[in-house]
């Protein structure tokens, strides 16, 4: 019972964050919202793992947390520089975001 409520609340939060990701208005708002969706997904997987008593799902939650973090940092690097192959020390910066 409480798990249904918890999963529903997480889904409501995810949909609110997705609405923000669609609305923008800036690129950083979208990345922020996607980061939030990722954190909530980790919690959703953890709730599912406990409710179905499959503890190996928790490994997936841990991996999702790792990939979410690395993904956000990688996207930020891409946004700042415009590509992945320069070191970022040339001082040129990324493409215009306005």
């Amino acid at each position: 019972m409480i798990y249904t409520v918890a999963a529903f609340a997480i889904l409501v939060t995810i949909s609110l964050a997705l609405a923000r990701a669609f609305m923008g208005p800036t690129l950083y708002d979208r990345i922020l919202a996607v980061n939030m969706v990722g954190t909530k997904t980790v919690l959703l997987i953890a709730v599912f793992a406990v409710v179905s008593e499959r503890t190996d799902m928790l490994d997936i939650a841990l991996m999702y947390a790792l990939i979410n973090f690395i993904g956000v940092v990688a996207v930020l690097k891409l946004v700042e520089q415009g590509n992945f192959h320069t070191s970022g020390d040339d001082g040129k910066g990324g493409p215009s975001l306005k």
Partner: peptide, 22 residues
């Protein structure tokens, strides 16, 4: 604990729509 967490999550979700800038 789980119910509090659920409410806090929804509060944060409302927060990203209430606050004016990034």
């Amino acid at each position: 604990f789980i119910a509090t967490g659920a409410l806090l999550g929804i509060a944060g979700g409302i927060g990203i729509h209430r606050f004016p800038d990034f």
